[in-house]
Design a protein around this nucleic acid. Sequence first.
DNA 1: CTGTATCCATCCCGATACTG
DNA 2: CAGTATCGGGATGGATACAG
Lengths: 120, 120
Amino acid sequence: MKTLVSRCPIEEVMQVLGGRWPSLLIYYLKDGTRRFSDLRRDNPTISHRMLTLELRKLMDAGIVRRTEFEGYPLRVEYDLTDAGQELVPLIDALGDWWEKTESWCADRQREMATAGLAVT
Amino acid sequence: MKTLVSRCPIEEVMQVLGGRWPSLLIYYLKDGTRRFSDLRRDNPTISHRMLTLELRKLMDAGIVRRTEFEGYPLRVEYDLTDAGQELVPLIDALGDWWEKTESWCADRQREMATAGLAVT
DNA sequence: CTGTATCCATCCCGATACTG
DNA sequence: CAGTATCGGGATGGATACAG
């Protein structure tokens, strides 16, 4: 299911949530079920290949559930598992923290600019 | 300071905290000040180069503070900023979530094994 | 001790084409 | 529509040597 040999849970969970796509996909799934092609439209810049790989990773981590419907054309739906739902507020908290810190950084930059320093 | 053009704070914060080292470094810094060489000892597998790069990234994100002391040999101390301290419980929560999920996965694996399925 | 620069192997990821 | 396979360019990261 997963072959990480780390003893640190943080290190492990970051292997799954780190990177550009996992958190975004979780966000698009948090309000309900989405199909493969929906997710492609949601994130126009993700490649077909990466979407499948990222979804598989999230499935292996028990965050995303895949449901396949018989018929033609083939139809597959993705949604968050219960564990995945629990994850949403935790990721949210990180986002909030970041926004707060960003504004703090912006303030600092403004101060420094006022003090006559270059702000690259 | 940072040149991300993403509109999603989650995506941005994951750029900083994602990957193998950031969360680990934060953990080693959360209990107090550490020197460069201390952090190398803490994480024997991180390369000299990566340690400097990761520390710089955390500094740019306003998470880590660097203090340089005059004298010979040069001495530098790192610790968490206030924003960095606030981050610790949030990362903790992710770690806890992961451990809970992991045990759930382990249970599932055991069930499947009992059912006679191979567990890679 | 701390940090930088260079070189080089590796891996990630996008593009593309193909299968069910 | 959903997913897999293959290839190649580019980013990533380790080793090493050097500088302050």
